[in-house]
Design a protein around this nucleic acid. Sequence first.
DNA 1: AATCGATTAAAACAACTGTTTAATACGATC
DNA 2: GATCGTATTAAACAGTTGTTTTAATCGATT
Lengths: 217, 217
Amino acid sequence: MKHSNAIEPVSDRLLHAAVEVFAEYGFRDATVRDICSRANVNVASVNYYFRSKESLYTQVLAFSFREANRLYPQDAFLEKNIPSEQRLTLFIRNFLNKLMDDSHLGLHSKLITREIADPTKALDDILKVEIVPQINLLEEIIQPIIGIKADKLTIQRCLLGIYGQCLMFKHSRSIIDRLYPELIADHSAIETCAEHIAQFSIAALTQIAHQQEKSTS
Amino acid sequence: MKHSNAIEPVSDRLLHAAVEVFAEYGFRDATVRDICSRANVNVASVNYYFRSKESLYTQVLAFSFREANRLYPQDAFLEKNIPSEQRLTLFIRNFLNKLMDDSHLGLHSKLITREIADPTKALDDILKVEIVPQINLLEEIIQPIIGIKADKLTIQRCLLGIYGQCLMFKHSRSIIDRLYPELIADHSAIETCAEHIAQFSIAALTQIAHQQEKSTS
DNA sequence: AATCGATTAAAACAACTGTTTAATACGATC
DNA sequence: GATCGTATTAAACAGTTGTTTTAATCGATT
């Protein structure tokens, strides 16, 4: 006797349930039984359809990245003929929206930041396929703002600074929820935060650019 | 028969071992048996000296904050007669050094950031006693830079931005280790990063201050 | 030397973990 | 309708977890 909501294949139900559970508890604290009960399937199904809990987790991560990129495509700021400042603003807005998406499919960013904060074996693959290309894109964007003469390490520090301002909203969500809930009350509030980070960073970057010019002239 | 290194009381050995294990694995994945074997005591000792694993964790967190504040006192930038920019620089340098301290006693910051990223019941106490005062101090420091007219929410966003740039080095350590290890190779490299964050932030803050003046005049 | 409270030790507890097994039910093919 | 591979189930497995129990040991006091 199949269960009530049997429209969706078992393996798909497992994958979706696993996204929820892994996002909520992390790989180590998520339990196979929890996943299976949410998917309304037997405990043995995880090992039947996916080889193991770990293999399921890997596939969940891959699926999450696909979904995140589907919902928040990076098309808008790929065009190189718009001003760098505007490209940076678009990039930050897109990234922050992706991070703060609390909808059903926004669990993906939780998974990823969890993986960064507490890496499993899966991190190295993620780095290569997803994170490095995104970082390279951001570097390409801020390069014209900061100037050609900029030190390589300086650029790296700027990159991390911009990422840090964004990721703060995810990694320290627990604190923001408790101290500054207004900042992330709704979508428009988050947009304002993105706008702020962009202006903050552009101001700093141009300032650094001026200093570079001075010191090398 | 007592064990070899019996100079230190059992409860102290347990506490120190617990700092290591909780920092490395987090509360949920740390095991009582691991802690006890590192402290060279029986498994039952945790429940004998501390009531439970959870109670031990609470005491470990409190101990860690005491140690962190002992090693990185906030005296230097408490004096209000030095320029705000310099106070901010000192604050950031102190904070980043505290975060990146990899020595034996630097495990404390690992514990704290872990607690922020994945809160237990203990977080609310930590917030009140340790984090809020530090945030208030930073707010007091940047207030003069950003100007009196600044919006309350704007100040909050700036606060988070500065914290985010610093915490990035802790929360996303796994990525920095893999992509930009030079940035945190040694103490002087970290100092340079602190200097960078300070300049980056000051540039942005003064820029915001100018914009505020324009829009309200 | 006997006694008492505090400490340590080994063992067992019950609950939970991921995984496996072995039996059953199903659905299509012959 | 029997047969065969697939899917599902309940049960059990072996390992680990935090905690408790019960007994042994120690050190000081009487």
